[in-house]
Design a protein around this nucleic acid. Structure first.
Length: 771
RNA sequence: GGACGAUUAGCUCAAUUGGCAGAGCGACUGAUUUACACUCAGUAGGUUGCAGGUUCGAGUCCUGCAUCGUCCACCA
């Protein structure tokens, strides 16, 4: 340690060390086939020390076996946030640990175009510039978002490196890469051929702001208090919170067993006065009606309500659109047509009141409404032709596999959560009305609905054309109608749902064979349904194998007070700022210690500051050990010492045994994914045992021997003691660095590079995990 | 309405699966200039949310309750 600075300076080290790793090639498993084990063993003074306690054993069971983690593809639409930092830290810990154990460790990085998410981000940007996507040509918009995404992609890649991620950049994938898109299309085609994909005219969640449909997962429930209006509908009174949808209501539904309405027969016609004049209503009986609610009678609006839609489907009733896709009333509303629903509601009630049709108004009606998870605009259910994926057949085998514990969930309770969701799964609306995504490669007949999937033309990130997917086919084979090319894109999760097998199949030769199924899927508990469940289903459907055997789910990263980070609250912790201030290793420790899987973590800057101090402690302990290593003068001053065996004192042997115990415990904890305890244990050992006890104890033995009196035999004894101490200190230091490496890769590597070890490896990253 | 968590020191959380309740931060007292003030030695701080039960033994398992949180669900 030439400069021998008293403080560890992360800034001077990190980029240099990352480059060292990248240049070494050991991020790639191709360069790992047991090489890190087969190379000369790292032995401290190996040629002259035979210490049984430190015999390195190669574990043949482990040597050269693959270990694979597919990185959750980060959204390429912004900067690395605290959640990403946690992903990078946990996964890097797993991979570095396994790599040191001799596995052919592959951590495959990737990025996601993140369809809707990115488009929303970009639309906000457009808004700020006073522009709108609805005034742009689709091609133009696509090109702009593409540029934006590619810039962010580069940006994020740099930030991932900053976190110390030891992933194999030579295998990096992007969801819009041509080879990935090709695989996505093949999957879609197979699903279509198997009858699992269908185009259906069903009720969907429509966001009037973003002009797209959304899956149930992309909506949030919001409880609010509204007025509940009791309206006279012929002989009945109906209750509704949404009078503005009622223009087309011509079916009145009652429970078949309701004694109050037993006189009314199914299908009976009634003439009655309604909002804009006389209409004819038809009586329908259905058990979906809750006799307890309101008056036990309701009219239905199948186009704009999911319950009503299902009743209408069941009884084959007419459906009529009342509200357009921008949230405005259609001509059916007569004088109210073209009004926004919010504005229309009060006016409609006024009119109804004037006509004497309002019986009463309940002012305090609490109910739950759906909102767009991005902009919180009220979701307007609409009937629309959409592509759907039948989920039940895909879920069935996964339910069985989970029940048989073929997938391990960490923490365990996610097993129940997953099973519950899978058992109640509904069909997945795959299509989105946005330009930023993978185009759905299909045509459908406007007349008979016949669909044709065409996968020939692939659009990758470098392609500049949105048009012409597949050969034209103007006329429907079946009925002679017009075939219309699909303009919708896939839900982004449809492509990321295929990520584990898609990335490996699109990878180097034999990658799929070697690394699939993968070992661990580590991601946020939040996206278990969005992503994990869908990967299991799609992965198993295509490959007949479960895509990963262990699912490790982490929680949210919160601010120091346990509040969710958000830009509006101004409590967002930018991991790169932290890195800048305290060093990446400190941030990594702060993210992992005290963070149990599945639970959220309050990230306190003070805590990270504490781990910066720890980094400094390691730095200074190293300085002490190195300052006290044997010098030429030591070796020359007493010929008796040359070639002599190290003789450890009983106390020193005990220290080494304790180290052994630490290794054993740490290894067990690492194997059980208890990184939060493992890290803390090593931390505690290093600081309070190694530094506070062992180093302090060593000082007398290391003191200048010229002060010791007595004969030459005494001096030799003294030198022997010193030599043993020097050996022990270096031994404990280097072993501790190995244990710490997965957690704090930068400082440990930097120090390793400077240690006077014999048979040193090219880098600590490929050193052998101690046993 | 259903499901799943959580509740332990002032704060943030552990407790390697039933075996002496522990860390970090913070607080307090003191030390010290030859690895480190980004230091060291020490102190205080707990009826583990409440009430029962099982057990030689319960923070941990069972039952009930309370509070908080999250997810799921089509009551107009």
């Amino acid at each position: 340690m030439e400069e021998s600075s008293k403080a560890y300076d992360a800034k001077q080290v990190e980029d240099k060390i990352y480059k060292l790793w990248e240049d070494s090639g050991f991020f790639s498993p191709d360069n790992l086939s047991g090489t890190q084990i087969n190379a000369d063993k790292t032995r401290i003074n190996a040629d002259r020390i035979r210490d049984n306690q430190r015999r390195i054993r190669v574990n043949p069971r482990v040597n050269g076996k693959p270990f694979t983690i597919i990185m959750p593809p980060a959204n390429a639409n912004g900067n690395l946030h605290a959640g990403h930092a946690l992903v990078m830290t946990i996964e890097d810990i797993m991979v570095r640990y396994k790599r040191m154990q001799g596995f052919k460790a592959l951590w495959l990085p990737g990025l996601d175009h993140a369809g809707f998410e990115t488009q929303v981000v970009y639309e906000k940007k457009l808004e700020k510039e006073g522009r709108s996507r609805f005034k742009m040509e689709p091609q133009e918009l696509y090109q702009e978002i593409l540029q934006f995404t590619l810039e962010n992609k580069k940006n994020i890649e740099g930030q991932i490196k900053k976190m110390g991620a030891s992933c194999d950049w030579s295998r990096e994938k992007f969801t819009l890469d041509q080879d990935i898109v090709k695989i996505v299309y093949e999957t879609f085609e197979k699903l279509h051929n198997d009858g699992l994909v269908y185009r259906g005219r069903k009720i969907i969640n429509w966001c009037t702001k973003h002009q797209t449909s959304l899956s149930d997962l992309e909506t949030i429930d919001s409880e609010q208090t509204d007025k509940l209006y009791y309206l006279k509908y012929g002989p009945f009174t109906i209750a509704t919170a949404r009078p503005e949808t009622k223009f087309g209501d011509k079916y009145v539904v009652i429970h078949p067993k309701d004694p109050r309405y037993a006189n009314y027969k199914e299908g009976q016609k009634l003439a009655l006065e309604w909002i804009n004049g006389p209409i004819e209503a038809t009586v329908i009986k259905d058990e979906a009606i809750d006799m307890e609610f309101g008056t036990g009678v309701m009219t239905i609006t199948p186009w704009h309500d999911a319950v009503d839609f299902s009743i209408a489907q069941k009884h084959d009733l007419d459906k009529e659109q009342i509200i357009d896709f921008y949230g405005k009333l259609l001509p059916i509303a007569g004088e109210f047509s073209d009004m926004k629903i919010g504005e229309a509601r009060a006016k409609i009630i006024e009119k109804l009141q004037a006509k004497g049709l309002v019986e009463k108004i309940d002012q305090q009606y609490k109910h739950v409404v759906k909102k767009c998870y991005k902009c919180e605009t009220l979701i307007e259910p609409q009937i629309k032709d959409q592509w759907f994926l039948k989920m039940a057949p895909l879920a069935k085998p996964i339910i069985e596999l989970i029940e048989k514990n073929k997938v391990t969930f960490i923490p365990e309770h996610y097993k129940k959560i997953s099973l519950h969701w899978l058992r109640n799964i509904v069909d997945w609306p795959l299509s989105r009305q946005i330009v930023w995504g993978i185009p759905i490669p299909a045509k459908s007949c406007e007349k008979c609905g016949y669909t044709l999937v065409e996968t020939e033309v692939i659009r990758g990130p470098t392609s500049d054309s949105l048009s012409d997917v597949g050969p034209r086919m103007a006329v429907c084979d079946r009925c002679g109608g017009t075939m219309k090319k699909e303009t919708d894109t896939f839900d982004t999760w449809f492509s990321s749902g295929q990520w584990p097998f898609a990335t490996l199949k699109a990878g180097k030769k034999d990658d799929f064979k070697t690394f699939y199924p993968t070992d661990v899927m580590e991601t946020a508990g939040e996206i278990i349904f969005f992503w994990v469940a869908r990967m299991l289903m799609l992965g198993n459907y295509i490959t007949k194998k479960i895509p990963f055997t262990t699912v490790y789910l982490h929680g949210l990263v919160l601010d120091a007070k346990g509040q969710k980070m958000s830009k509006s609250k101004g409590n967002v912790i930018n991991p790169l700022d932290i890195t800048e201030k305290y060093g990446t290793d400190a941030l990594r420790l702060g993210l992992v210690i005290g963070n149990t899987p599945g639970t959220s973590l309050a990230l306190d800057e003070n805590k990270i500051k504490g781990y910066k101090h720890f980094a400094n402690k390691i730095w200074n302990a190293t300085r002490f050990v190195l300052l006290n290593q044997p010098t030429r003068i030591d070796a020359d001053s007493n010929a008796d010492l040359r070639g002599s065996k190290i003789v450890l004192s009983a106390r020193q042997k005990k220290h080494l045994q304790e180290l052994k115990k630490l290794i054993k415990e740490t290894t067990k904890l690492m194997d059980n994914y208890k990184f939060y305890i493992a890290a803390e244990k090593i931390y505690h050992y290093f600081w309070h045992t190694f530094c506070d006890t062992i180093i302090e104890e060593s000082k007398s033995a290391l003191a200048d021997s010229t002060e010791s009196r007595g004969n030459s035999r005494g001096i030799t004894q003294k030198l022997k003691e010193r030599q043993a101490t020097q050996y022990m200190l270096l031994e404990i230091l280097s072993t501790s660095l190995k244990l710490l490496h997965p957690f704090m890769p930068f400082i440990t590597e930097e120090i390793y590079q400077q240690l006077p070890l014999k048979n040193k490896k090219e880098c600590l990253m490929i050193e052998e995990w101690p046993t």
